[in-house]
Amino acid sequence: MSSLPPKGARFALGRPGGETDPHVRHFVSSLPPEGARFALGRPGGETMSYLPTGTVYGVLLNFRAEVEALALQMNQPPYKAPPKAPVLYVKTANTWSPHGSTITVPAQVDAVEVGATVAMVIGVDNDVEGFVLMNDLSIPHASFFRPPVKFKCVDGFLGIGAAMRDAQEVADPAQFRLEVRINGELKQSIDFSQTVRSAEQLLADVGEFMTLAHGEVLMLGCDAGRPLARPGDRIEISAPGFETLVNTLVKEQA
């Protein structure tokens, strides 16, 4: 995003002994000890996996194909009209799963929906400090009338990329291309030029009614055609310039 000033670099630390990717900056998590138990060792370095420091917001219907899939229902009850403002939800801190960790699927759930996306991390001056890959899992649900808390705020249901990529490395978020693989098989390709609101427009429209604070996170949306994954599956979300985000599903012990 050309209008974004260079931010975030001061938070970036070199990766000890790192096989450095010049486009990805790693930094030591600023979480206090309680958070540290979620941090996993990483091959070849002692750096911790990134975890947000602020509230994480997701957005529904920010891909054109999502809107098209619901077009016939939008003017019918219970919705009665297409949404005007961005349709947001919160991924509460209990959902956060660092890169590499396993995610437990509740015993009564057969499959979960994989919402692959890129999220913006907000900087000190309400600008964008960086971008992180996210694996926004949901228990599949057909209605978007009521807030999706029991479908989206399940323990562990948000895989979070290992590192934040500096905003200054990103010319235009519309150029992001993601691939979702389950057990190595390509299941979805996502083109971020197909969003309803650009990253900049989304920030502006959300900012109209709430302030995103430093460290808070706003996802760019999850495209239609979200693949299903089951216990035992290994989910990989990859994009040029980002370290691949990997999470493996396990079944809850009854």
Partner: peptide
């Protein structure tokens, strides 16, 4: 005024500064 029927009550109604 800001109620919409998507994830209702939506954050524009309930999460304002």
């Amino acid at each position: 005024d800001y109620l919409e029927n998507w994830y209702r009550p939506n954050l524009r109604v309930k999460n304002r500064d």
